[in-house]
Amino acid sequence: MSDYERVTYRITIDASRCNGCNNCTTACPVNAEMRKKEDYDPNDRVIAIKNGVAVVINPFRCDGDGVCMIVCPQDCISLEFIPLEEYEDTTSVQP
């Protein structure tokens, strides 16, 4: 599984167009891998449906497959990189 220390992808969902069809939650490969585990925690999923609208719960887990946006019938999901200027420079090797 992807255990990145930081969020690399930004999922934006247009809640006004979402009709809660559950396509994205079933198609997401990270959700499917987690469901096989014994200690399955539903609050640890990437995408889930709450109050009839798809919501991103845990953006740290997202692996950037882009399956959710291909599957969506309303085209209301978009996936992008978070621009590098928003990170702090902590990991670089300083010369």
Binding site: Y9, G66, L84, Y87
Partner: peptide, 30 residues
């Protein structure tokens, strides 16, 4: 230096996003 990050390859080849299939992290790149 592990400076290259994997992007949404399947979606960007289908041209559903503007995100490139590969991004170079310039904080790490030498």
């Amino acid at each position: 230096r592990y400076a290259i990050e994997r992007g949404p390859i399947g979606a960007s080849v289908r041209k559903r996003t503007t995100a490139p299939p590969i991004r170079i992290n310039y904080h790490k790149c030498v």
